[in-house]
Simulated assay, not measured.
Amino acid sequence: MVIGVEPAAKGHENADLTGFIVAGRGTPYVSAYGDNRPRGYVLHAEEKRLTPTAVMRRAAALYHEHQADWVVIEANNGGEYLPALLEQVDPRVPWRIVHATRGKRARAAPVAQLYEQTRIHHVGPPRTFAELEEQMLTFVGLGETEDSPDLLDSAVWALWDLFLDQPGRIAQGDDRRLDGRR
């Protein structure tokens, strides 16, 4: 279980929103047609305009509320200070930092394939995912001319961490992605 955070680069009233996603990985209880591959579950999606300290407080609150394993923080646009800020807000919360090295479309493509394989499920009231699903349906990757899809980005980071990331760049502790999930 991870909390994906895609922070806004600025904190003023017209700034982008910060996206928060709670996602988990599990093995299906009953396999469909012999498909025992792990499934992803998006349990919560929200976006807010917050100060950096408030962003880390909200990430810590979601971490505790959902008993997550860690927080995945996207650190482009000067966000390198966010893990230090999270440690000040709540030193008990483990984190991983990720950096965008490719465009949003290239990062989202493998996660979109997981959705196409029906391996990712949104679990909870539909209104919880309305904005996320709107961003998923309307994002085309036009660059600067398109609004930043904050929830989509945070979902990509969370699901990438759960399914696609290679162990070895964990900020704190051992790689526990598969503990209790076999």
Rank of each mutant, 00 (worst) to 15 (best):
D174Q: 11
A45V: 00
G141W: 15
R58D: 06
I170V: 10
W157M: 04
E144Q: 09
D165T: 08
A8G: 13
P167C: 07
L85N: 09
Y33W: 03
P91D: 09
D179G: 07
A106S: 11
L178V: 06
A171Y: 03
A155F: 06
Y33M: 08
G79T: 03
Y63K: 08
Q88S: 14
R182H: 13
T118M: 11
P91Q: 02
T53R: 15
A54N: 12
A59P: 05
F129S: 00
R37F: 04
L142A: 13
F163E: 02
R177S: 08
L142F: 03
W70H: 14
R57A: 10
T101S: 12
R58F: 06
D16K: 09
E74Y: 09
T118D: 11
D150C: 04
D147T: 02
G40Y: 02
L152I: 03
T101N: 13
N14I: 00
P126W: 05
L162S: 09
G173I: 02
K48M: 04
P38M: 09
A108D: 07
A112D: 14
T138C: 04
V22W: 00
E46S: 10
L178M: 13
H121A: 11
L17F: 15
W160N: 14
F139C: 01
H122K: 07
G103Q: 05
N76Y: 10
K48R: 15
V22H: 00
G173F: 06
P38N: 09
V111W: 15
A32R: 14
V30E: 14
L151F: 05
T138V: 04
H121D: 02
Y41K: 08
P52R: 14
A45N: 01
E74N: 12
E13W: 09
D147Q: 07
T27V: 12
Q166T: 07
P28S: 07
S154F: 12
T145L: 12
Q172G: 01
F163I: 04
R37W: 04
A75Q: 13
A106L: 09
Q88I: 01
R96N: 14
Q67I: 05
G40T: 01
V42T: 06
G34Y: 03
T53L: 13
A15G: 11
L164N: 09
I73V: 15
W160P: 00
K10M: 08
S148Y: 12
R105D: 02
L132G: 08
V42A: 05
P28N: 06
A54Q: 15
A112I: 03
P83S: 11
L159G: 06
A106M: 07
Q88E: 13
T53W: 14
G4L: 06
S154W: 08
L151I: 02
V2H: 08
W95L: 04
R49A: 03
P149Q: 07
A158Q: 07
G34K: 01
P94T: 05
L85P: 01
A84G: 15
V123F: 10
H64V: 03
Y115I: 04
K10F: 12
L162A: 12
R127D: 15
T18Y: 06
I170Y: 11
R182A: 09
D69A: 14
P167Q: 10
G11Q: 15
L82G: 08
P94F: 06
